[in-house]
Amino acid sequence: MPPFNKHRPFISLSRRQRRKKVIELKNLIYRERYRCGGMFYDDCDIQHYKDNPDSIWAWSDIYFVGRNPADLWNAEIITTKLMFQNIVHDRAFNEAWAMLSQQEQEEEARCETTPNMNNKGKIVSHTLVHRKERAYAIFGGLTFWQFIEKREREIAQDEPPEVGCGYQLLPGYAYGHGLRMVVDAEALSVPVIEAAIGDFLKKVKDMA
């Protein structure tokens, strides 16, 4: 993607600066039209999912231009199924985390590594060391992650969150207007993303 200021929200830029970024994105979309279809740009390896139908494309970051020449959109697009799974996981994780003491939380968050040396004895990288997971009485003898998996199954069955398709504006983005798009599809594809963009642009009033 083109370089951008990490600390200054896109909406605070002058119209001239924003139009320049829109033109740059349009050119990028045009250059990548053979891969992305010509309506949006995505860094994702789209061809991988075309060649491997068993790999489910359920989430991506995409960029597309608005109807106003000074607007572009920086969007997370996600399927309802993956959004459901994410919400369930977050609930289970937060519940389990809150049940631990501060010391136990620190222990669970701690990572152990061993240094890797080159032939001159200089550290060039580190390897993560697998630690034996601790079982907790408060989790009924399960480890932290075993309890989370248990709670995920229970929440999905007994307390399923309601997830629907739609759009959510995400303020403060440095590159473009932030947006979350939730689509009711088994998997993402270029046609699915194009349809979502088309529907969104029909409904939204582009920001001046």
Rank of each mutant, 00 (worst) to 15 (best):
S12Y: 07
E152A: 06
D61V: 13
R15W: 02
K50Q: 14
E159I: 05
E24H: 04
I87T: 15
Q157P: 14
E152C: 13
C165F: 02
E159Q: 14
F144A: 02
T127I: 12
R31S: 08
Y63P: 00
F139L: 00
K120L: 13
I193S: 13
N68W: 03
F4T: 11
A196P: 12
K20E: 10
T114I: 13
A75Y: 05
V22D: 12
P53N: 11
W59A: 02
R15M: 07
C36L: 00
Y136Q: 03
A70L: 03
R67S: 08
K120V: 11
R18Q: 04
M99D: 05
R131I: 02
H7R: 10
E32S: 14
G176R: 09
C111T: 10
L13I: 08
G140R: 01
C36N: 11
D43S: 10
M1W: 11
T80E: 01
K202H: 08
A195I: 12
L128G: 00
L28Q: 03
I56Q: 13
R33M: 04
N68G: 08
V163D: 08
Q146L: 06
T80W: 08
I155D: 03
I62V: 10
Y136G: 02
P191F: 00
P160D: 07
N94I: 01
D51P: 07
R151C: 06
Y136W: 09
V182P: 08
